[in-house]
Nucleic acid binder design. Structure first.
Lengths: 172, 172
DNA sequence: CCGAATTGTTTTAAGCCTAAAATGTTTTCC
DNA sequence: GGAAAACATTTTAGGCTTAAAACAATTCGG
């Protein structure tokens, strides 16, 4: 077997663009681990919300967005904040209005816009759920030291920025 | 206003069990950031898979599981590995068998069990997609240094362990 | 050996989610 | 002013997802 067959792509150090099938296995493993963590925690939260309060995670998330703004938000705002499609929000809101948790009205100044806000009932129920939810999260992350939490926050911020940049590169 | 109203819960340092509405805001913010990162990257990958290969993320994920094992897996195995419900896998597999990417057969030794594996076509298509997928992931994480990647891996491993422990505490 | 648990899968009913097309409204700008 | 672009939302069609119930096959204990 000739020696050449052992050459690695690295030999060709001057012309870096030349087909160097680079190794990205580490990033791939990182992505899978990130996904696993999120799926695990999300599933746990989903199950607890259903058992304790008979509510779905998307509904809880939507109410969480609205709890922060007393004057309500438009559907587009919610859609952007939750990073879900417009049509998705339409259906979600429909069901929450139906159940009396949300109030929806057409904007006076722009008749395209629907403004939604929590009803008294919706806010009360959300606050109750949110309090318990916070303890679940604390418990799920219980083994992380304050320093771990800070460090994770920092690295995830960096990750988010990197991903946003990459997404923008593709969709300018 | 009497001085007592400024007392914090911390004053009562001996009896820690006494209603100390502890502050878990940091963990909550961490969870939201983790979720944001995952959603962002997942959405990006989903979109690219659809545009480039007209395939959905769940199908890609299922094929990824099968690519690792030439002899195939049972539906339960897949379900556990992907952390999704059994019924979900049934439907997913149905569609992938239909499109010729998967082969499904009943186990000889246990007629309850369905063994699925990639077909030649399925494997070939998956390999093509996976190669490109890896470059997307590398690009999405491009701004992280190798040290960042290692550190994130470590912290996410710790997070996963913590969450699993918490889940087990609730469901023994 | 046989009934009772257990295990693996499918079905069911309901809800979530997306991309793309359609609808209605406002703004832009000639 | 009015056509065209931009915007906010809804609709549509299809797929994903879950929990729970139903079904089928195997294993376990007496």
């Amino acid at each position: 077997m000739p020696a050449e067959s052992d050459c690695t792509a690295m030999l060709d150090s001057e012309t870096k663009a030349v087909e160097t099938p680079e190794d990205h296995a580490e990033e791939l493993r990182l992505w899978l681990r990130l996904l696993t963590c999120t799926t695990l925690i999300e599933g746990e939260v989903r199950g607890r919300l259903r058992q304790r309060f008979d509510v779905t995670l998307p509904r809880f998330d939507l109410m969480a967005q609205l709890d922060k703004v007393p004057d309500g938000m438009t559907l587009s705002d919610v859609s952007k904040r939750m990073m879900v499609s417009n049509g998705n929000v339409t259906g979600l809101v429909e069901r929450l209005v139906e159940s009396g948790h949300l109030d929806r009205r057409t904007s006076e100044t722009d008749r395209r816009v629907q403004v939604i806000r929590l009803t008294k009932l919706g806010r009360a129920e959300f606050r109750k759920m949110a309090a318990e939810h916070e303890t679940w999260i604390a418990d799920l992350f219980a083994d992380l030291s304050p320093k771990d939490v800070r460090e994770l926050m920092r690295l995830l911020a960096k990750t988010k920025a990197s991903a946003q940049k990459s997404a923008a590169r593709r969709r300018p």
